[in-house]
């Protein structure tokens, strides 16, 4: 076997083939729909589907290639997410530019902890060390006007974008074991696939049956019907894909259900930030979807929640 491609369990290939089939089906469906009855909505769905092809390719590369490459990919995704968030944040002062660079320097360190499977370094570096380092650097700079905002916003954004995504990197490097047949990459695939499908399910259920808004002031498109529909569908899908995870017969129902809720919370959290700043999208990196943060918003919480359930049950 080539050193750069990891020996993967057949489960992973089966899941990736399932993704491929879904993408082919969606592309075909929207293409034909567009031919028969063109409308802006269908055109947008088609653009989004093309973007899904690109994103799925990146996910496949992360899962299939050597973990070092996957971790590097994830660190660049983290960096882009942090950049999007810090660029639009209105709570960061112009004087903070010399401090923001510490946040960027923290990214490779955090992903190195993850890659080296050093759990203590990984779990304390940002929430403890950076939460001290950034404020002390701000204090040393001496610009006290609005310093409280910068002290909390900078580490907070680091937490939201870098700490969360680095959980995927840590998972990616977990080796195959008797209870974890598909290895860490299987779990990464599970979280990514389930989170994104949960977004799609909630969107579809909401579009068809949506009536009762949950947080109309933050995200008017989020309805109880969408949330509950997504919750049930995601739970079933999560159960069906259970072979990628080590979870037993009860947890395999509970975990996807938790992921569904966590995904929703991440989504509305980023929506609230966007609303505060007054933008619709965080950028225009992904055609049809908006910025990177628009796409990975739900992943920011699901990756962390999933990882800690796994870690508590199997590493404690």
């Amino acid at each position: 076997m080539n050193a750069w491609i990891r020996p993967n369990h057949p489960f992973i290939y089966q899941t990736l083939i399932a993704v491929l089939i879904i993408l082919c089906f969606a592309t075909l469906l929207f293409s034909i729909w567009k031919k028969i009855k063109p409308s802006p909505l269908v055109s947008e769905m088609l653009t989004r589907t093309y973007s899904w092809w690109g994103m799925s390719t990146i996910v496949a590369l992360i899962v299939l290639l050597h973990p070092a490459l996957g971790v590097t990919f994830l660190s660049i995704i983290s960096l882009s997410a942090f950049r999007e968030l810090s660029s639009m944040s209105k709570n960061i002062r112009a004087a903070d530019r010399n401090i923001i660079i510490w946040c960027y320097l923290a990214i490779p360190v955090q992903f190195a902890w993850a890659y080296l499977q050093n759990f203590h370094g990984f779990i304390t570096f940002i929430p403890v060390f950076m939460f001290i380092w950034i404020p002390i650097m701000l204090v040393m700079k001496g610009e006290t006007q609005d310093i409280g905002k910068s002290m909390s916003v900078l580490p907070g954004e680091l937490m939201l974008t870098v700490f969360s995504i680095s959980h995927l990197a840590y998972m990616l490097t977990i080796p195959i074991s008797p209870q974890l047949l598909a290895g860490g990459s299987g779990m990464v695939l599970y979280v990514l696939f389930l989170t994104e499908m949960n977004d799609v399910f909630q969107f579809c259920w909401g579009k068809v049956f949506g009536k009762h808004k949950i947080v109309p002031k933050v995200s008017p498109n989020k309805t109880w019907e969408g949330l509950i529909g997504g919750f049930i569908t995601t739970s079933i899908l999560g159960y069906a894909l259970g072979f990628l995870t080590p979870f037993g017969k009860y947890m395999i129902w509970i975990v996807p259900a938790i992921l569904s809720i966590a995904g929703f919370i991440g989504d509305v959290m980023v929506s609230a930030i966007k609303r505060d700043v007054g933008v619709k999208d965080t950028g225009n990196l992904i055609p049809g979807h908006g910025g990177l943060m628009d796409r990975i918003d739900s992943l920011l919480l699901t990756s962390v929640v999933f990882f800690h359930i796994y870690y508590a049950l199997y590493h404690g």
């Binding site: 950049r83 010399n98 950028g283």
Partner: peptide, 18 residues
């Protein structure tokens, strides 16, 4: 647009921004 935020006049440090 925005280049002045990444590397303004008189600064040596380049900071990523959109």
């Amino acid at each position: 647009h925005g280049m002045g935020k990444i590397l303004p006049k008189g600064e040596k440090l380049l900071v990523p921004f959109q």
